[in-house]
């Protein structure tokens, strides 16, 4: 098993980040081109806790090396199931994702948490991400190679995701400011 971890701070309040999170893979994100579709499978609010639970299907298209395609059954389209929970009283967004495609060979379990930055809780948001990557198989060298490749690719995609999300946050803030100034004119 290999573990990937990263964290960063976004210079936007938690509420804004939590709204923009739903738009993470929109046209403003020109970085995460491997995500081709995001569909909502189910959504509900727990009446006692107020927690919003959302289940989504994320469709990705990304090429993989030929040696790897041979083992995982070689389709370019792959699917990820994400279950997220928004807790408005604690101000957290937790997203848990698992790969549906190729899960007999490699399991990728990712957790992302957005929460107010402890130093500047009203203006900044902390982003924490970790992933556990485990390859299954009889040949440990091959498993090691699959895990290494997966961790590397995961890191590249995570970097693109952060840059792309930064752009979404900036555009959202701009759109919001314009909407406010339009309202002020009326």
């Amino acid at each position: 098993m290999k573990v990937f971890e990263s964290s960063c701070t976004f210079d936007y309040p938690w509420a804004n980040v939590s709204v923009a999170n739903w738009r993470k893979y929109c046209a403003w994100n020109t970085q995460s081109t491997h995500v081709v579709a995001v569909d909502t499978l189910s959504r509900s609010v727990d009446p006692s806790t107020g927690v919003l639970r959302t289940e989504r299907l994320i469709t990705c298209k990304q090429s993989a090396p030929r040696w790897l395609m041979k083992f995982v059954g070689g389709t370019e389209e792959s699917f990820v199931r994400e279950v997220s929970e928004v807790d408005p009283s604690k101000r957290t967004v937790t997203l848990r994702s698992t790969n549906l495609t190729g899960s007999n060979f490699v399991s990728v379990q990712e957790t992302v948490i957005y929460s107010p930055d402890p130093i500047a809780p009203e203006s900044k948001t902390l982003f924490r991400q970790d992933a556990q990557i485990t390859a299954y198989g009889a040949f440990s060298r091959l498993c090691g190679a699959i895990e290494d490749w997966s961790v590397e690719r995961f890191g590249q995609n995570a970097m693109k995701g952060r840059l792309g999300f930064e752009a979404v946050l900036e555009m959202s803030a701009k759109a919001f400011r314009e909407m406010r100034s339009e309202e002020a004119k009326i």
Binding site: R81, E82, V83, R96, S97, T98, Q109, T111, D130
Partner: peptide, 13 residues
């Protein structure tokens, strides 16, 4: 996937 892990929280954190 829903049956095996309804909330995707099988991983230890």
């Amino acid at each position: 996937a829903r049956k095996t892990s309804p909330n995707n929280d099988n991983a230890k954190h």
